[in-house]
């Protein structure tokens, strides 16, 4: 019962939580804006890792592609941020469709490494090869070129927060629908038993390709939102030294779940924000927490919450039946 309710109201609850916190901590608006954007970024990685079982050390590349697609449009071509965002998503679509067929043929470890290599190439391209248009490490500034939207002026932090929260709500609705759809079941089936999926008549290559492309779109979309949020981009957005961060956030939240990316983004950025005030090397705490999660809470924050709620439900109903509510899954799975 609680699961169905959570499932229906989940996107709204997430957005309400972020909004309430933003008003409780008014000077933290940029932090909560980043949580909303980072959630979308983690969602992309979650499709690869949590649903398809692919580890990628190259997600910042796609973040950078989305950021630069948006930034280049706003700096040189047009003024409308919505068109720039659509270009960002489109860049993910193009890169997913073009790179997918060769990347997804690779074994998991090679897939991880080729993405890392791509990340390094991407930084070189943004920083050196296209320096005339990207301005290299100085970054590309375009905030003054952006026009305001009919109802919102996304150049202002308060308005952009509202915009991002609406976007997050819509993206969560789409993500939830994807999770519940047959395509989502195919993704999880592929991770569970790829060969079996072939036995029953699926072209697993195409399923991976679609998943890879969707993941790319999420990542580039997050990159576009980052670009608009900052009003500029530089190559550090796509640096592969940051590739592990999104994997850690995915694990922290609970991989293979709809709401895990939100909890992962919240926990990761929250820890980073709090710990970095006291320790320069905030990664130390994130590292310890990751080890703890891997050994003790493999289902991540959201998976553990779900398990806890299921335990309460069982105690209340006094049932020892191992059945679970529809859609509930294994390690780290479920909405």
């Amino acid at each position: 019962m609680w699961k169905k309710t959570l499932d229906r109201l989940g996107p709204l609850l997430v957005v309400l939580l972020v909004t309430v916190l933003r008003y409780l901590f008014p000077n933290k608006i940029s932090f909560f804006t980043e949580i909303a954007i980072y959630t979308i970024y983690v969602m992309g990685n979650n499709i690869l890792y949590g649903y398809l079982g692919l580890v990628s050390f190259g997600q910042p590349f796609y973040l950078g592609i989305g950021g630069y697609a948006t930034a280049l449009f706003l700096a040189y071509v047009g003024h409308n941020p919505l068109v720039a965002l659509l270009l960002g998503i489109g860049s993910g679509l193009v890169f997913g469709i073009v790179l997918g067929p060769s990347f997804i043929r690779l074994k998991s470890s090679y897939f991880a490494l080729i993405n890392a290599a791509l990340c390094a190439i991407g930084v070189f391209i943004f920083e050196r090869l296209l320096i005339d248009i990207t301005r290299g490490n100085d970054g590309l500034w375009f905030r003054s070129n952006m026009s305001k939207l009919p109802l919102l002026d996304v150049r202002l932090p308060q308005s952009f927060f509202l915009f991002v929260v609406i976007v997050l709500f819509l993206v969560l609705m789409i993500y939830r629908h994807l999770d519940r759809s047959t395509l989502g079941t195919m993704f999880r089936g592929l991770q569970s038993n790829e060969e079996k999926l072939k036995f029953i008549g699926y072209d697993t290559f195409k399923i991976k390709w679609v998943g890879f492309t969707i993941a790319s779109c999420f990542s580039t979309f997050a990159g576009s939102l980052y670009a608009i949020n900052f009003g500029f981009v530089n190559p550090s957005l796509g640096e592969n030294s940051r590739a592990v961060e999104v994997i850690v956030a995915t694990l922290l939240g609970g991989s293979g779940t709809v709401y895990g990316p939100f909890f992962g983004a919240f926990a990761f950025l929250g820890i980073k924000d709090i710990v970095s005030r006291w320790i320069t090397r905030w990664e130390l705490v994130v590292g310890i927490l990751t080890i703890l999660v891997l050994f003790r809470f493999s289902k991540g924050i959201w998976g553990t919450i779900q398990q806890y709620l299921l335990g309460i439900q069982k105690r209340v109903s006094g049932s020892n039946d191992i059945r679970s509510p529809k859609g509930s899954r294994s390690a780290g799975a479920g909405s």
Binding site: T182, T185, G189, S192, N193, E195, S324, G327, R329, S330
Partner: peptide, 23 residues
């Protein structure tokens, strides 16, 4: 039907059937 009796163990029975039916 392979001898190892591997189903999609992380999915529910109905999701297993749904996948097979959708194919």
């Amino acid at each position: 039907i392979h001898q190892d009796k591997h189903v999609f163990s992380t999915l529910s029975v109905s999701e297993n059937l749904e996948l097979a039916g959708h194919a």
